[in-house]
């Protein structure tokens, strides 16, 4: 198990490096720069600025400077927001984004797994139909529309929760954003869980377990759930990364102080440092999540370890 983990970690490193390279060059080869703002800067100021951020060097040199700094954990300065470097901006915004995404993740995964199991056991009966509808609604309605409808109904008409904005530490302000974020995730999880559970319930080994007279409850809890979790687990990594990127949007919609705010502005202003820094952060998170998922997978399915 340990050597398997080690091999997986090693194979993630080249992917990370290549991905950093791809991001860097795509972003830098795009037309426009951080200083072609609405009012043109005097040439000398512009030259000074460019020199300050190493933008006057050849692109390849800039790349190596960037990677060298990155290896030291330095994501470089923001080119638009004065006096802040990218790490500071991330430190301000990311904890909020992460907290919200994790809240939504835990809630949605739990609800999704439970709902999927119930639907599988009651396949083609009413709990199944209700669930399928709830999943469709959650997955198909785009998050900004869902946000608008929920804000209107629960925030404005019923006045149960605040419709938007942020008061530090107020849980009430998080209810709607987390719901919007969690619903589609719960939907996808439950759909996966339902599908794999139905499949597992039809396997020979579940039939064997039933033939032993274990009783349906034990058959489900001991024989069916663990194998049925496999596809769900392999989705959790991508799922969490959807939640993290999805929360960029939800923050924007509800006016919450996460990293999404900086990212969208930075992209519009071509603030290379911030865009690249955020992208790399997310990429590393996604790679790390995939790694964790692989390890959990190896634990759930003993066969994987020997490959």
């Amino acid at each position: 198990m340990l050597s398997y983990a080690f091999r997986r970690v090693l194979s993630a490193i080249p992917i990370a490096l290549i991905a950093v390279t791809v991001c860097f060059f795509i972003l830098r080869l795009a037309p426009g720069g951080p200083f072609d703002g609405e009012r043109a800067l005097p040439p000398t100021v512009l030259a000074n600025l460019r020199a300050h951020y190493n933008l006057d060097q050849p692109l390849v040199v800039q790349y190596f400077i960037y990677v060298w700094r990155l290896l030291h954990g330095d994501l470089g300065p923001s080119m638009v927001i004065d006096g802040f470097n990218v790490s500071q901006l991330i430190a301000i915004g990311f904890p909020f984004t992460l907290t919200m995404a994790l809240c939504a993740f835990v809630i949605a995964t739990a609800i999704g797994m439970l709902a999927g199991m119930v639907a599988a056991v009651y396949q083609n009966k009413w709990p199944d139909y209700v669930l399928v509808l709830a999943v469709m609604i959650g997955v198909l309605i785009p998050n900004f529309l869902m946000a608008a409808l929920l804000q209107l109904w629960f925030g404005v008409y019923l006045k149960w929760v605040p419709a938007g904005g942020w008061v530090n530490g107020s849980l009430m302000h998080l209810i709607l954003p987390v719901t919007v974020l969690a619903w589609p995730h719960a939907g996808r999880i439950s759909r996966l869980m339902r599908g794999s559970m139905i499949e597992v319930l039809g396997t020979n080994y579940v039939r064997t377990a039933r033939s032993k007279g274990l009783g349906e409850r034990l058959v489900l809890s001991r024989h069916a759930i663990k194998p049925a979790l496999l596809p769900v687990v392999s989705y959790l990594g991508p799922g969490l990364s959807y939640l993290l990127t999805g929360s960029l949007a939800v923050e924007q919609i509800f006016g919450l102080p996460g990293i999404g705010k900086y990212f969208v502005t930075a992209a519009l202003n071509r603030d290379y440092g911030v865009v690249l820094g955020t992208t790399i952060l997310y990429m590393f998170i996604i790679l790390a999540l995939n790694l964790i998922v692989d390890l959990v997978y190896a634990w759930l399915d003993p066969k994987v370890r020997y490959r």
């Binding site: 020979n204 080994y205 039939r207 064997t208 032993k212 274990l214 663990k226 194998p227």
Partner: peptide
């Protein structure tokens, strides 16, 4: 009823299936 049947099958009447490769639970 399934709950009564479960007190009999596995104890008084047992069954072995065709395919031993898939009839045992791979995760236990």
């Amino acid at each position: 009823e399934k709950s009564r049947l479960d007190r009999i099958r596995g104890k008084d009447i047992a069954m072995i299936f065709q395919d031993p490769m898939t009839s045992l639970n791979p995760s236990l």
